[in-house]
């Protein structure tokens, strides 16, 4: 369950920064991205995917969240 920071880069893309690994990746897809529900499965540009507990509304970015590695349950 790494702590990750999600922010928007200057090209408007969502980025996924894993502090522990010092790894910054662009988010290619986000499962829920609507005004009522935000989060879920996240796919990154390097091919890996993570799971964020869905939030009731899109958060103010940047934000630090706990992410699960997808498939960890």
């Amino acid at each position: 369950m790494p702590s990750v920071m999600i922010s928007r880069n200057k090209n408007g893309q969502l980025t996924f920064y894993i502090a522990k690994k010092d790894q910054e990746e662009i988010i290619v897809s986000l499962e829920h991205d609507s005004p009522e529900r935000w989060g879920g499965e996240v796919a990154l540009a390097d091919g890996s995917s993570y799971y964020l507990e869905p939030l009731p509304a899109p958060p103010k970015l940047p934000i630090t969240l706990r992410a699960k590695r997808a498939g960890e349950g």
């Binding site: 920071m5 922010s7 920064y17 940047p62 630090t64």
Partner: peptide
């Protein structure tokens, strides 16, 4: 960069 990211958030 760590502290800059923190202050941004």
């Amino acid at each position: 960069n760590y502290i800059s990211r923190h202050m941004e958030e």
